[in-house]
Design a protein around this nucleic acid. Structure first.
Lengths: 234, 234
DNA sequence: GTCTATAACTGGATAGAC
DNA sequence: GTCTATCCAGTTATAGAC
């Protein structure tokens, strides 16, 4: 996806028939994005230097400016790269669910359709996706500009979820629905951040990267929460 | 608390019998902490410069180093200043609740005892506490060092909550309890961050600083969530 | 305790060769 | 496209006067 688009755009052709240790041989642009993604996720925008990214990506700072103009635009490129893919996934997932269930949509089903594409990629998508989601988690709790960035990229998906749940809980007030969503959003983004907090807190009983343990619990927890908050208005 | 300890330590005595426009006229050290708290909460550790803090606090950088030695120690001082107060509050609140209810503790009651001291200060504690909680929210989602910092400062309070809930849900598994707590923690810290996200998302229907609207919903949501996740193990 | 001045260094960004 | 070399603004931190 992102990779091929990038190659096409920059018009590179194989310069050296590199031996390839994994059939991979990303071009520099993708390598920069991958490294930047990892660093930004761990340390935030200001905690990363372009020199550091350059060195870890085995290029130098001039090349980063060549591709992205500025550190800020590099960050935006990182954030945008996977946003469209995951948004498409989630919208498709919810559309399919609604098409299947029609008027029979349930809160659990809606939440699962909303969460599953993310958790699946978190679990099976490799390091890149894991880093990306950690970054989303961090941005979501950033007071200064987090709310604004999240709005720009993710609002349509969320409105789709809220519409679905509203069908499952007819009569629920907008206020109750939005507050409940906010609680779900917090739970999700903390899980995405994978800070290892729960590992330490539970002394190893839970592991923050144990998605198969997380997913059913998160769905059950959120669905019960929504119902409990929204029921009085319904 | 932190203030008096700080004064004693640095051996300051009232230099001027201060006129007071609000009985306030904080000494420089507190002014520095207040400003740093606000900036760190908004922009994170690396997004703030000590020059900027100095200038906003109407002192200069040398004084900051005089009091705190380094930027890192300034950050720690900010984080620590209110931690003990709020931890004491929450432990007292849960102790009082358990003393009152004994074997009759409920999930709702336990969660309320855990949340209320925080939400009360968020609502009525003024700007300082609001900034502090936003900082806690940000740190909690910081992959690099967030989990560790939170562990150091807040674990005892959380174990107290989990014990209480375990009494209300006898037989619940540790795993279910910890996962559920993690969901609650995410909801709480996102609310603390006050990113304005929910305001934008709901187009004004909800406001992230509307604690009286938030509190009952958060309690209901979390309690239903805990019950739903933990019931099968109970 | 608070200031000025500055040391010592790191940051993002660019010019220009290849 | 990718590199070397470099500019210079901004950073933390300290020395030393008052």
């Amino acid at each position: 996806m992102g990779a091929s688009a990038g190659s096409a755009k920059t018009g590179r052709s194989a310069k050296v028939g590199r031996p390839a240790k994994d059939s991979r041989e990303k071009d520099a642009r993708e390598a920069i994005l991958d490294v930047a993604e990892e660093r930004f996720a761990k340390h935030g925008f200001h905690g990363v230097t372009v020199r550091e990214v350059a060195s870890a990506a085995h290029v130098n700072t001039a090349l980063i400016h060549y591709y992205f103009n500025s550190k800020k635009e590099l960050f935006d490129a990182v954030f945008m790269r996977r946003a469209e893919t995951i948004n498409r996934d989630r919208l498709d997932s919810m559309d399919a669910y609604e098409a299947r269930l029609g008027d029979r949509v349930s809160v659990e089903g809606a939440i699962e359709a909303f969460l599953h594409p993310v958790l699946k990629r978190l679990h099976e998508g490799g390091e890149g996706w894991r880093n990306y989601f950690a970054l989303v988690g961090l941005v979501n709790s950033t007071t200064a500009w987090g709310g604004e960035v999240m709005t720009r990229y993710f609002d349509p998906v969320i409105h789709r979820l809220i519409d679905l749940i509203a069908r499952a809980l007819p009569g629920a007030s907008k206020q109750d629905l939005y507050w409940s969503y906010n609680f779900l959003s917090g739970s999700l983004t903390l899980s995405l951040a994978e800070t290892g907090r729960i590992d330490r807190l539970s002394e190893g009983v839970c592991r923050s990267d144990d998605i198969p343990a997380l997913e059913p619990r998160m769905i059950a927890y959120a669905a019960a929460g929504f119902r409990s908050v929204c029921v009085r208005s319904a």
